[in-house]
Simulated scan of single mutants.
Amino acid sequence: MAAEIKIQYNETERALSTLRQTLDAWNSHYPRQIGGDNQLQVIDKMNELNEQCQQMLESYKQLLLENQAAAKQSVETMEETDHSLSSMITLSR
């Protein structure tokens, strides 16, 4: 079974670039404090939950940025390997 893997590098790079731009523009700030001087327990609990949500959003954004960078590096490595193999095949003919 002969199967060829074809990577459309330009399309992949464009998609990864769009992802990076979207992540850079993403405002992940969540309201940390509500209620001002209000001393209701529910306000304290909401502020605590808002802080946790903010931390979660920041962690998620960082994970997406790391995944985008890893995917970009993988595509670049595949492209370099593809060019190297192509050159080797051309030289061996």
Rank of each mutant, 00 (worst) to 15 (best):
S59W: 14
L85M: 15
Q21H: 12
K45D: 11
E51D: 08
L91V: 08
L16E: 03
Q39N: 10
E66S: 13
L57S: 09
A70C: 05
E11N: 04
S74V: 04
Y9D: 02
D82A: 15
R14H: 05
W26G: 01
H83D: 05
Q39G: 05
A69P: 00
N10D: 15
E48N: 05
Q41H: 07
I5Y: 01
E51M: 05
T22V: 07
E48F: 07
S86G: 15
I7H: 01
D37R: 08
N10K: 11
L57A: 14
S74R: 08
L40D: 11
Q33W: 13
A25K: 10
A70M: 10
L49K: 11
E76P: 00
E58L: 06
L16S: 04
V42F: 12
D82H: 14
L57V: 15
G36Q: 08
R93L: 09
E11L: 04
R20T: 02
T81W: 09
E80L: 14
E51S: 04
A3R: 00
S87D: 07
M1V: 04
T22L: 12
L57C: 12
T22I: 08
T81H: 09
K61V: 12
L64I: 00
L49G: 03
N38Y: 00
N10G: 11
L16Q: 06
T12N: 04
T90E: 08
S59A: 15
I5S: 00
I34D: 01
Q62D: 13
K72P: 02
Y60F: 13
N50I: 12
L85F: 13
S28N: 06
R14E: 14
V42P: 03
T81A: 12
V75H: 00
Q41K: 07
A3P: 00
K61E: 13
A2F: 10
E79H: 12
R14C: 03
Y60V: 09
Q68V: 14
I5E: 02
S74G: 07
S17A: 03
L23R: 03
D44K: 06
K45P: 00
L19Y: 05
S17L: 03
Q55S: 05
Q52C: 02
I43N: 05
K45M: 07
A70K: 13
L49W: 14
E79N: 10
A2Y: 06
T77F: 09
D37N: 14
L63H: 13
I43Q: 07
I5H: 00
V42D: 15
C53F: 15
H29P: 01
